[in-house]
Amino acid sequence: MRTLTRKGAATRQRILEGAAALIREHGVAATTLDDVLSETATSKSQLFHYFPGGREELLLAVARFEAGRVLEDQRPQLDDLSSWPAWDAWRDKVVDRYRRQGRLCPLNSVTSHLGDRTPGAQAVVTELMRRWQAEIATGVRRMQDAGQIGQGLDPDRTAAAILAGIQGGVLIQMSTGRTTHLEASLDQSLAYLKDSARQVCDRR
Rank of each mutant, 00 (worst) to 15 (best):
T176C: 00
S38Y: 10
R97P: 00
S38Q: 14
D34N: 15
S38H: 12
G177C: 03
A30C: 05
A61K: 07
L163K: 05
L128F: 04
S112C: 11
L16A: 06
L128Y: 01
E183S: 06
Q101S: 02
Y50Q: 00
M129G: 10
A137R: 03
D80N: 14
D34M: 11
D80S: 15
I23W: 01
R64N: 10
L114A: 10
C105F: 11
L58P: 03
G139M: 00
T5R: 02
T42D: 05
V124C: 07
G53T: 09
G18E: 01
V125Q: 07
A184V: 06
V94D: 12
V94Y: 11
H26A: 14
Q148D: 13
W132Y: 12
A20T: 13
L128E: 07
N108W: 15
A159H: 04
L59D: 12
R103D: 07
V200Q: 15
R204Q: 15
G8L: 07
A159I: 09
A89P: 07
E39K: 12
V200I: 07
T40G: 06
M1D: 12
M143P: 01
V200Y: 07
L114W: 01
A29H: 14
R100P: 03
D96K: 00
T158I: 06
V94A: 09
R24I: 00
L107E: 02
A159P: 03
R14T: 12
A30E: 13
Y192H: 13
R64Y: 09
R99M: 11
V94I: 09
P52M: 03
D35P: 05
D79V: 00
C105E: 14
Y192L: 15
R91P: 15
T158V: 09
E127D: 14
T118K: 14
R142V: 10
M143D: 05
D79C: 00
A86N: 10
V125N: 07
R100T: 00
T111L: 06
G8S: 05
T111K: 11
S185P: 02
A30W: 03
A184I: 05
V200A: 09
R198P: 09
A9F: 06
L60F: 02
F51C: 02
Q188L: 15
D73N: 14
P85S: 06
P155S: 01
G168P: 04
L190E: 00
A123C: 10
V36L: 03
A134G: 09
G169V: 03
A9D: 00
S38R: 13
G27P: 04
K194E: 08
D79G: 07
D73H: 12
G168M: 06
F51Y: 13
Y192C: 13
V140C: 06
S185A: 15
E25N: 09
L58N: 03
A137T: 04
Q77S: 11
S185N: 15
I136A: 07
A134L: 06
F65V: 11
E25H: 14
S112E: 10
A19F: 01
Q46M: 13
E25K: 13
R203Y: 12
D145T: 13
A19R: 11
L71Y: 13
I136P: 02
L104S: 09
A19V: 04
Q101I: 01
V140T: 04
A61V: 08
S38P: 08
G150F: 05
V200T: 12
E72V: 02
P119V: 04
S43W: 06
L78P: 00
G139V: 02
D154Q: 04
I162G: 07
D156Q: 14
A10M: 10
